[in-house]
Design a binder for these strands. Sequence first.
RNA 1: GUCCGGAUGGUGUAGUGGCCUAUCAUGAAAGCCUGUCGAGCUUUCGACCCGGGUCCGAAUCCCGGUCCGGGCGCCA
Length: 436
Amino acid sequence: MDLILRTHYSGDINPEMAGSEILLAGWAHEIRDLGGICFLVLRDRKGLAQVTLVKKIVDTEMFKKVRSISRESVVQVRGEIKSESKAPHGFEILPKEINVLDMAKVPLPLDPTEKVECELDTRLDSRFMDIRRPSVLSIFEIVSSVLHAIRDFFYSQNITEVFTPKIVAAATEGGTDLFPISYFEKEAFLNQSPQLYKQMLMAAGMDRVFEIGPIFRAEEHDTRKHLNEAISIDIEVSFADENDVMAMLENAIASAYKHVKENCQRQLEILNLDLVVPNIPFKKITYTEAIELAKNDKSVPIQWGDDLDTETEKFLGGIIGEHYFLTEWPSSIKPYYTLQYEDRPKICRGFDLMHPRMELASGAQRVHDLQMLTQRIKDKGLEPESFEFYLDAFKYGMPPHSGWGLGLSRLVMTMLDLENIRDAVIFPRDRRRLVP
RNA sequence: GUCCGGAUGGUGUAGUGGCCUAUCAUGAAAGCCUGUCGAGCUUUCGACCCGGGUCCGAAUCCCGGUCCGGGCGCCA
């Protein structure tokens, strides 16, 4: 679609286009006034373009106007491309017309040219300005590319995209860590996972579904890898076991890396990253093996049946050094809907996908037998009555099924080696931040 | 939640009892400059989180608060 205010982006221009007249629109990234010559660097989402004004040649009014433009003002430039070895990227724009569409106030809340460092908190307070910084914009363009790749992968596997409700009734999964909201005359909650709804769609015969959407967790955690609102990439597949969906998961991850490497070269360059596509299949390590490994190292002993603490996660990540699956977890620390091994009920067919830095996804072969599921709910100290809408779906023919949920921002964070998950979310929601 | 650390111009920082009329960079304002590309040069502007206390004297020490960062916990 052609837009009236722009014919090209900065990044689309090359010296071979010399002589053609174009229309650029963007922000005044920098204005360098050397006296007899003045450079206006225009920035748009694809890069920078130098607009060169020679005092003797251009209109006096235009020269004066450019010198008075404040940084980050929105400008539109009509001009001719000139091949010029002295200019960045070998070209410059000789302007015929410059319009200031909106003048930016001074001072700026942070420096979009990235010359001066800025703390994350300051950046998040002025996120709109922060995203003008090319490296920050690159991250979010890569997030989009990851989603594109994963959606493509799902569609190639004939998986149907669905949406499930984010506003749910009380006590669906215990209730302690859900955000309560007011819903007309009723109390409601923000859903912490599409889990139960995905499973109900297996009973509906949708066969394989995926959902990419927000999840909400009311835990008061305060770390660099947790948020209270996150985007979860979830799938559920009928007539599949945990190994089938683990294969889908590693393929989804690998295709995301590949797609980013092939389609986001400019962004990766800005971020100074040499992306390495992980090899699949990923290693599989059982929980029991992991505990044995950790026992050799740990100062504080870890016991079979404990959930893995941060120290153990880091230790395992350090010795394994790449993505891996943790399988065969104790049934006691996995949710009620995780299927136990028939011959060894102490362990179950749940798995976690780990990156050396942190957990990225978890999934399982699900319980599809109503009686067993009801018992498991009771065993976990929960009330089957609260799950009636869910359990009903298991009464009239539920196929065996498996699935997983993957944290989008954690995937991006580990892919791009970001220090804080907030760097991978445009407007993050954490224990303290509700604005912007 | 808990432990540790921190809060200084718009932004990022130096300064741990008097040498602070507070450092440096960036920025902003004015001026010089025809090839900058983190341009350069000259002049100027702009800050000690809030409240209480100790002291002749507090950005600096103490107490309380607020906010921020890091570790851990929590994360069916």
